[in-house]
Design a protein around this nucleic acid. Structure first.
Length: 558
RNA sequence: GCGCCCGUAGCUCAGUUGGAUAGAGCGGCUGCCUUCUAAGCAGCGGGUCGCAGGUUCGAAUCCUGCCGGGCGUGCCA
């Protein structure tokens, strides 16, 4: 609000300066407003004069003075616009504007930090999509936290969002076959038979557990089958078991999907075949060594890719192209995939495929998040997939809980490696940032409870005198609350949910300072009590919104 | 070899569509509980922003080269 008003006023001042001959007519610049690092530089600042001076010559301070002279910001928003430093213009928000923010939040908590940048357009967000050969692992938990939070941010900014999880269960899938062979070996071992896990099988203990469970549930009946029958039965059994488990993992993490899309269903509907046909028709394929290839190099990839293997089975990529075409055909305006770090080689292939099949690659974004390393204090917990000792998300959740897991996954940008300190995440103490933030909410709840006990009614905004808000720590808090809409917009636009954890800590910090220095429930000043209760309510609303976008709870008590 | 990501305080990281004196948390040290939750607050210390050049009025941020770490580079998914 204030931001738009200032930007508009600056752009008008620019026109007036041109009309008055203070600036040449032909300059045209986008106006950037930033929040200065140093609060002495005001609440917002622009370096426009510096950029202008660079463009047209002359002194930046001189240009700044002229712009300020032409500046006409609507009343009640800015208290002070001043030229500073080498040629910045710094704006200080008016107290009455800040008080108005509190009023707005309390009057319409549901609408606060809801915007319409998306204009009702639709996004399909695909994330996690773990291979159906094991439980959801910790790294994929990171994807789940990122995807879910991103979805919420998009929803707040006017997009319609669908969340999807893709299951690579292609007919006769090599990896599921390999898994079935592994399970077979573990099953046979249960009966003391000589059997070894295939070289490229799955080493994890979870397969042993699956075999034990299978014995408990169905006894030795798989022993009396031909190998072919047995593998076929185990193939179906594993797939169902694993996918059920993954669905349970996601539920436990509080991440819901609108749809689980099965690759096998795309095959059943002949969509893979159809996609390949289209690629052929459009001349993007050729045959070599008995296989069908996609001319991916013509579309930006560094090598061509196999679509149909020489044994006649379509490749993983073929299924993926069909899936992405299917997404576009369902009418989504924008597609976003979140991939794990081991898939970045796949990015260009899928993009090439999407383009080849006739869709605009600009409407399709792929984000790669980096690895998660688990630390027990300063000691790293081994989790290499090769050795089979992957750490399942479910055991992380048992260990630290979903709130801590989600918060930690979102504490840093997705493109940097994440060192997850299990000890820190478990600490119910102030070193733990999750509790720092949740504690602010619990304190607020406690004030509101105490007010109720003292029979102090939470006042209606209309009856409260917000002019009583004048303490510096009250204003610092309000300034933070005022940043929420902008933070949400930025986080969504840049696809950076981790901004929200940082912002959450800042709001909590501002609140804790306010709490320490400004007593809310006063015995002798009913008016001030009412006013501060209103500010507390506004803070509660903001914290709830932020915690919701991160996907963690807002506890009443701690 | 080629491609992607990372390199900022003792540790873990923000900050990177160029802007003012580079920030936070943790750890270390010092204070603060008769009053709404001390899971809190206040303070002190801590930096050649991997290295070297370049562009710019201005570079952690852009360009080039180099060094270090991770990952990818399958008719696996």
């Amino acid at each position: 609000m204030a931001r738009e008003a200032i930007v508009n006023a600056l752009s008008e001042a620019l026109s007036r300066a041109k009309a008055a001959g203070d600036l040449p007519e032909d300059v045209d610049l986008s106006i950037e407003l930033q929040v200065p690092r140093d609060s002495r530089h005001g609440d917002m600042a622009t370096s426009l004069p510096l950029v202008l001076a660079n463009e047209v010559g002359g002194s930046a301070r001189g240009i700044a003075e002229k712009l300020v002279a032409h500046l006409d910001i609507p009343k009640g928003i800015v208290a002070k616009s001043e030229v500073a430093g080498p040629g910045f213009i710094n704006f200080t928000l008016a107290p009455e504007y800040l008080r108005g923010v509190v009023r707005r939040i309390v009057e319409e908590p549901e609408q606060y930090a809801r915007t319409n940048a998306g204009g009702g357009k639709s996004i399909l967000l695909e994330f996690v999509s773990a291979n159906p050969t094991g439980p959801v692992a910790v790294v994929q938990g990171r994807a789940a936290a990122l995807g879910d939070s991103l979805a919420k941010l998009f929803e707040r900014t006017g997009w319609r969002v669908a969340r999807e999880y893709y299951v690579n269960d292609a007919t006769n899938s090599t990896q599921v076959q390999r898994f079935a062979e592994t399970l077979e070996a573990r099953y046979l071992q249960q009966f003391g038979r000589e059997a070894t896990v295939p070289e490229d099988g799955y080493q994890g203990d979870y397969v042993v557990e699956m075999a034990e469970e299978l014995v408990r549930a169905e006894g030795d009946r798989y022993l009396h089958m031909s190998r072919e029958e047995r593998l076929s039965a185990l193939y179906d059994y594993s797939l169902k078991k694993i996918v059920d488990g993954q669905q349970r993992d996601m539920r436990a993490f509080g991440v819901g999907f609108d749809q689980w899309v099965f690759e096998s269903a795309l095959y059943a509907a002949d969509e893979v075949e159809a996609a390949i046909e289209t690629l052929k028709e459009k001349g993007h394929t050729y045959e070599k060594e008995g296989a069908l290839w996609l001319k991916a190099t013509e579309l930006g990839d560094d090598q061509d890719q196999v679509l149909i293997r020489s044994d006649g089975r379509p490749s993983y990529l073929a299924g993926d192209i069909a899936y992405h075409r299917n997404k576009f055909e369902r009418g989504f305006d924008r597609l976003i995939d979140i991939f794990g770090p081991d898939h970045h080689g796949h990015v260009r292939r899928v993009k090439a495929g999407v383009q080849a099949v006739g869709y605009d690659p600009a409407r399709f974004e792929i984000f790669i998040h980096q690895w998660v390393r688990l630390f027990q204090g300063s000691e790293m917990v081994r989790m290499s997939k090769r050795a089979g000792d992957i750490v399942p998300l479910s055991s992380l959740l048992e260990d630290v809980g979903t709130d801590a897991a989600r918060f930690f996954f979102l504490m840093q940008s997705m493109e940097s490696h994440l060192d997850f300190d299990l000890e820190l995440a478990k600490k119910r103490a102030n070193e733990n940032p999750v509790y720092y933030v949740q504690y602010a909410h619990a304190r607020i709840s406690s004030i509101l409870r105490e007010a109720e006990e003292r029979r102090i009614a939470v006042p209606s905004v209309a009856s409260v005198n917000l002019d009583l808000l004048e303490h510096p720590d009250e204003f610092s808090l309000i300034r933070k609350l005022a940043e929420l809409p902008g933070e949400v917009v930025e986080a969504a636009a840049r696809c950076e949910p981790h901004r929200m954890t940082r912002y959450a800590r800042e709001v909590a910090a501002a609140f804790h300072v306010f709490y320490t220095n400004c007593r809310v429930l006063s015995d002798d000043d009913a008016q001030l009590t009412a006013t501060r209760l209103t500010l507390v309510q506004a803070t509660q609303t903001v914290l709830r919104i932020v915690l919701d976008t991160i996907g963690i709870s807002a506890p009443e008590k701690m």
